[in-house]
Each structure stands twice: as C-alpha cells, then as structure tokens.
Design a binder for these strands. Structure first.
Lengths: 365, 365
DNA sequence: TTGAAAGCGCTAACAC
DNA sequence: GTGTTAGCGCTTTCAA
C-alpha cells in the first residue's frame, strides 16, 4: 500500500497541525462508539444490533439503526475485515494477449462484476497477465498474501492451470466457463453446443451446405463445445464436414480477416462462414467485402457473443447472444456464497443462448 | 461486506472443528509477531525494520527482512489500513450510457489502472453509473463511507459535477481530461487540438477541401479542444467551414453510421469525413461502403483514439493515437502522490498525440 | 438482554 | 537502537 514514510494519514488534519486527538472530530468519523454513547448502550450491543443478532431486543435494534442513520454511520471496512479475518476483496486476473488489450467483451463483464461487488461492499482487485507462469504466480501471490477471498476466473481452458491450482489450494473461486472433465467447482457457462447448433441449423435452413468455420483457439473449453454443436448439426443434416473449410482463429478481428481470406481462397468457396466470435466475424466481413462480396447476400457470415457492435455493423451481424453483464453479476453472487457458506456445493449454470438473426446471413445465392 | 450471520471466517478450519487457537497454525498466517519471535526482537522493531525506519540498525533490518522472506510473511492489508487510517482502495466509476456498455477504450484503460494499482497493493473499486444524480450519489457514498482514498475520473465534461463535488470536498482525485476553465486538479489529457490539426492538415495535403465532421458530444471537454484544432487548421488553410457539414455524434458506431449518412446526403458531398472517435469512424465507413464508395479512395475517413481494431479494420483506419494503457498507469501514480503527499500540487500532463496514417485516407479523387 | 474485556495485526508515541 | 504500551474500529466470548 502507500509507503509509510510519505504517508500522512488524514493529511488535511495533520497538515493543518491538529493534534491526533482532534482529528476524529474534524473528520467526523462516526463509529459504533458514537452510536453507543448516543443510545446509552455498550459498543458490543450496538455491534450486535447492527448485525441483527437475535439476542438483542427489537427496540434496541430499532433505536440503534435509527441513530446510526442519523449520525451517518458507515462501518470501517478495514476494522471489519481485520476482525472477521477476510480480505473483503475479490481477485480478477484478466488473461491478455499482447500489450494492446481491448476486448469489448470484458468491459461489459467488468461492469457487471463491479456493480454487484460494490453493492456488497466488496472490492475488486483487477490485474492483467498473459497466460503462462506469470499468470499462475499472480494467483499464488494473492492467495498467499491473503489479498483476496476468492477469484473470478474467465475463459477457462481445457487443461486449466489456474483452476488446478485453486482447487489444490481449496481456494474459493467461480469460473465463467467449464473445464474438460473435472468440474468440481461453481461455474456459469453458456451452452455453446446449442448455440452453434442454432447457427448451423439457421444456415442450413437458408440453403447453405458449404460452410466455412473459423473456430476459436482449441485451448479454450468453449471451443470444444461449440465445435461439438457444429458437428452434431452437420451430422443431423447429413453434411460431411470438409476439413479444408475448418480453420482456427485467434479471436481478434485481424485473425478473422486472415482466416476468412484463407477460406475464400479455397477452390470451392463456402457460401457461409461461421466465426468463433463477433470480432472475428467482423474481420471475415471485411475480407469478403474487399472481394466485392455482399455480406448477407453473396455470402453469409455469423458471429458469437452479440457484443453491442454486432447490432450496428453493416450489415448487422447474425450471432448468438450471451448476457455478459448479468453473468458477471451472477458469478459474484455465487462466489460470495462459496466464500461465506460452509457447505461446499458446486452450482453449475449452463445458459441457453439465443440466436439473433440479423443482416449478415441470408439465403444461399 | 459479507454478512456476519453466514460468515464462517476461515471456514476450512472452523468447519473442521479446530479450535480458534489452532486456526493460526493451520492457516499458517505469518505475522510480525512470528518474525519477532524468530529474530528475538520486539514486534515494534520488526514493524519499523520492515518499514525501513532509520532508527533501526542495518543488521537488524537485514535480519528481519531475511526471516520475513523465509517465513513467507506478507502484511495483513486490513490491519495496516486500520492503523494507517486509509482505505487502500481507489474508486473508479465508469460513466455508461445504457445497459449494454462496451467501450474498447475502457478495457485497455482498466488494464493500465489495475496493473499499476495491484503493484502498489491498492484495490480498485469499479462500478458503473449513468451520468446524472445517481453518479454523484455514488461518489458521495464512497467519500462519506471512506471506502476509497481517491478517485479516477474519466471523460471530463465542460461543467463537471463530479469534479466540482470532489474539489468542494477536497477529496483526492485525478482526471483523464481537463475541465473548461478551473483546472485546479491533477490530470492527464491528450492535446486534442493538436491531434485534430494533424488530421486536418493531413487531409488538406491530400487535396481535400470539403471535409465533413462528426464531432463528439459537446458536453465533453475534449470535444471543445478538438473542434478548436479543426477550426484553427481550416483557418490556416483558408477553408471556410460549412456548417451543414458539421454534425454531432454520440461516440457509438451506430451514431457514426447515421451521421455519416446525413453528411453523404448533403447536396455537395464531402470528400473526407473526420469522426470524433474510432467507433464512429467505423460506422461512417459502413455508411460509405453501403453506398458503394471505396473508403480511402472515393472518400477519406479518419478516427481518433487508435483502438486496437483501427489497425485491423478494412481499410485500416487513419487516426490519432493515445497511449491509453500508460495513461492509466500514470494517472494512478499521480493519484497516489496526491493521496500521500502533503504538498498539494496539480501536475497537469498534456500528451502530444501521434497521427497514424493508414488506408482509410487517400488523395482526393 | 446486555456489558466488560480481549484481541484481530499493525503502527507510533514515548521511554530507556 | 530497541522495547513497552496504547490504540485503530470492530466482533465475540463469557459473565452477569
């Protein structure tokens, strides 16, 4: 934290030369002591009243709460945390690739997490790490220093070191996404299999048969489920997947552009392209448009995520919606439950996604 | 924070039925007491040694630091904060418009802020509010409850209530952006005037004379400076601004699309469009492309921000670069200085932006 | 139902 | 240089 040597606590007061005694009055920090004095009870009673203990009479509780409000009391988080032996903080380590990090997905997610936590009076410790050893070290440091009470892990991987580590340490966490097999932890995930099935069925209904796929990196668990959905739907429709039409992208717009070009250079061009996320779909749209193809007419392109931009691109993007903001909130709730409850269960939520049909997909021409 | 009634501190230990005494050993929390015992000195000495007080002998310091490391000691943040009377937390209230919030700008900024703060052992309290009363209430709550030691304010407005409030309260904060007149606070801002001058000069060099402008909302301070730069450059080149070619957008892609259409419906079409940010520039590109115009050839379009996507759009976007990540880091440094220093100065940094010429701008056809 | 008292881990007067 | 001691604001036994 702030270095002690330069730290002038309550600098205003000290700066002005007030003695330590009077700082309290100047800054008017209301503590339970003040409430106790006001209601003529002990601080212990006030504390228990505020925490709604049932060995306190209703009248006392009411009185305490009333005066607390009048005095503008709000608990000192540090004192509570010290006594309760909790950090009052949740860790969120964003996996980033490269220094220029900018995923619209995360700004919405952080908004959800942040709002939920701030309502609960819990802090968020955000930092970013590139997947690898550094990333695990960051988790380890926070755990060992007891800086956080739990973690939110996002974009789970098939063999996720972060999760293995946290499970080993029995450290509370929730994940946005599953792991491959062992899933003995609380998570929220969308049903990527279903999502992709919806997409493929939509395209097949439109008459498409030759469908190119720009999948997400295979390390992510969701990739596996989404590919499963694609293959299931292909199978059902009697389409035999052409492996020259399946490529893997890096989730960025640039990656989508490059991979779409690869697909469009195929001897027998696909009439539709399924991208693993919206960003890559945008890249694919650019690639198609550069070749003079009219997206939604000459070629259909679909995304996954339904980031806000998907609605406003041209043409607007057919995609799969995930309620990212509320997933963020829900994960926080689950995490707090995990931290505070002695019963360790593993709530696992799989959300059914919605297909959003927009302008980028149309009948095969 | 966590409700007391359900909270099982160190649930593992309590759950397993260990007595309070032994929790300490089980969870192996190393405190300065342990170090004191180990080195055979008092806890006060250990504390001062760790904080590098100069009334402690170098040998003692070295010994203390060594054993602290060996024992895997890390300070209890709550105890430090309680004693030092600080929150150890910085507030960051994102201004959002509408529930679906997703600005690539902010994910990069948060990454910068988060990394810097986590290095310093400071937490971040993130939440989002729509500008208005609710927003100010959030600031007020955090200030009164002493939940944070300072704020980072972003996207300053001409008449910024947040800043007025914080100045009134003499509460530490730093801003990304200036205010109109009174700027008695630390901030970092880019030189928007210069940025736009660079853009206009670039377009004029390319032969453009009829230039459309999709400006940012006038409430933001940066809009004022950017417009100033545009007018200055127009003036210098002897161009008389045509007010039918100046419209105001809302910083979203959709807004850029709509406003670009307005401009392109003008009797005398502009040969270039300056957008107030990259997102709107993308929207404008879509609008132009829909009309069969080739961006960078038939029409030039420029952005502002240089978000990562700008490099990978098609055509890639000519824009103005702002080092958002490092601005985030720098602002944190300034804020910590403001919080810990008794001298209240107002470091004000104006960054010179760089013009990034890419494919979306070309000679007038 | 309530109060007295101990203590969470740390810092900082003040004494030696 | 170092130790003693008294808290920071809160929770929680234990006794009344």
């Amino acid at each position: 934290m702030y270095s002690i040597k330069v730290l002038k606590r309550l600098s205003c007061a000290i700066f002005l030369g007030y003695s330590k005694k009077s700082i309290h009055e100047i800054c008017m920090t209301v503590t339970i002591k003040d409430i106790a004095k006001e209601v003529g009870k002990s601080i212990a009673t006030v504390s228990r009243a505020l925490n709604d203990y049932n060995d306190i009479s209703e009248e006392t509780k009411a009185l305490v709460r009333k005066t607390a409000k009048e005095l503008g009391y709000s608990p000192n988080a540090a004192a509570q945390r010290l006594q309760r032996r909790v950090a009052g903080t949740i860790g969120f380590i964003l996996p980033t690739f490269g220094p220029r990090f900018s995923d619209p997905f995360f700004s919405e997610f952080i908004a959800g997490v942040g709002n939920q936590l701030s309502e609960l009076g819990i802090d968020l410790l955000v930092s970013t790490r590139t997947p690898g050893d550094q990333e695990i070290d960051a988790y380890r440091e926070y755990v060992q220093a007891k800086r956080v009470d739990g973690f939110i892990v996002v974009r789970t991987r098939l063999n996720d070191k972060r999760i293995h580590y946290l499970l080993d340490e029995k450290f509370p966490f929730v994940a946005f996404g599953r792991m491959d097999n062992e899933n003995e932890f609380p998570f929220v995930d969308e049903d990527g299999e279903m999502g992709m099935r919806l997409i493929v069925e939509h395209l097949i209904t439109l008459g498409h048969k030759r469908i190119g796929i720009i999948s997400s990196p295979s390390e992510f668990t969701f990739t596996k489920y989404r590919m499963k959905g694609i293959h299931a739907a292909f199978n059902k429709a009697g389409i035999i997947p052409d492996h020259s039409l399946i490529v893997s992208g890096d989730l960025t717009q640039r990656g989508g552009y490059q991979k779409a070009n690869d697909l469009l250079n195929n001897r027998e061009k696909p009439s539709a392209i399924i991208a693993g996320n919206d960003l890559m779909a945008f890249g694919a749209m650019s690639a198609a448009q550069e070749r003079g193809l009219m997206v939604g007419k000459d070629i259909s392109i679909t995304g996954f995520d339904d980031i806000p931009m998907a609605e406003h691109s041209h043409p607007s993007l057919t995609t799969i919606n995930q309620p990212i903001y509320s997933i963020g909130r829900q994960l926080c709730e689950m995490l707090v439950h995990r931290i505070t409850s002695e019963i360790i269960d593993h709530p696992q939520v799989i959300l059914s996604p919605t297909l959003i049909v927009r302008g980028s997909s149309g009948p095969r021409f």
